[in-house]
C-alpha cells in the first residue's frame, strides 16, 4: 500500500511538472510548479527524510511562489507573452481592476520590453 502511495505521489510530481511546462499562461504554470515541489516534499517524507521534506516545503512552496509572483508582477503579468502567443485558453481575461493596478505600477518604473510590445500592438 505504501508503494502504491509513493507511486501516486511520484506520478503527481510528473503530471504537475508537465503541466507547468505545457501551460502557456504564467500563473497556472506557477501554481503547478508549486504543487510539484509540495509533492516532492511528500515523497521525501515517505522516503524517511523529514528534515529535507521540511526544507523543501518551506522553500519550494513558500519562497519560490513569492519570488515567482514578484517576477510576474515585474514583467507585466505575462500579459504581453499571452497576447503574442495567443495563450488565452485559460479563461483569465485582463479585467479592469487588474489593468488599473498595472497602470498605476506602470508609470513609476522604466521598463523596456513591455512598453515596446504594447506600443507595437
Amino acid at each position: 500500500m505504501l508503494e502504491l502511495l509513493l507511486l501516486l505521489v511520484c506520478a503527481s510530481i510528473l503530471i504537475s511538472g508537465l503541466l507547468a511546462i505545457c501551460l502557456e499562461n504564467l500563473l497556472p504554470a506557477m501554481v503547478s510548479s508549486g504543487l510539484a515541489s509540495l509533492f516532492a516534499a511528500v515523497s521525501f517524507l515517505l522516503l524517511a527524510a523529514p528534515d529535507v521534506a521540511m526544507a523543501e516545503a518551506a522553500i519550494g512552496s513558500g519562497l519560490a511562489t513569492f519570488i515567482f509572483l514578484y517576477a510576474i508582477r515585474k514583467t507585466d503579468g505575462g500579459k504581453t507573452d499571452g497576447a503574442t502567443v495567443g495563450g488565452n485558453t485559460d479563461g483569465r481575461r485582463p479585467d479592469p481592476g487588474q489593468a488599473a493596478g498595472d497602470e498605476t505600477g506602470h508609470g513609476s518604473s522604466a521598463r523596456g520590453k513591455p512598453d515596446k510590445a504594447r506600443g507595437g500592438a
Binding site: G34, L38, A41, L45, P50, A53, M54, A57, A58, S61, G62, T65, F66
Partner: peptide, 13 residues
C-alpha cells in the same frame, strides 16, 4: 512537524 510546516506555507502561498 512536517505537516505543520506544510499547512502554514501553503496557506501563505
Amino acid at each position: 512537524d512536517v505537516a505543520l510546516v506544510y499547512g502554514l506555507l501553503s496557506f501563505l502561498a
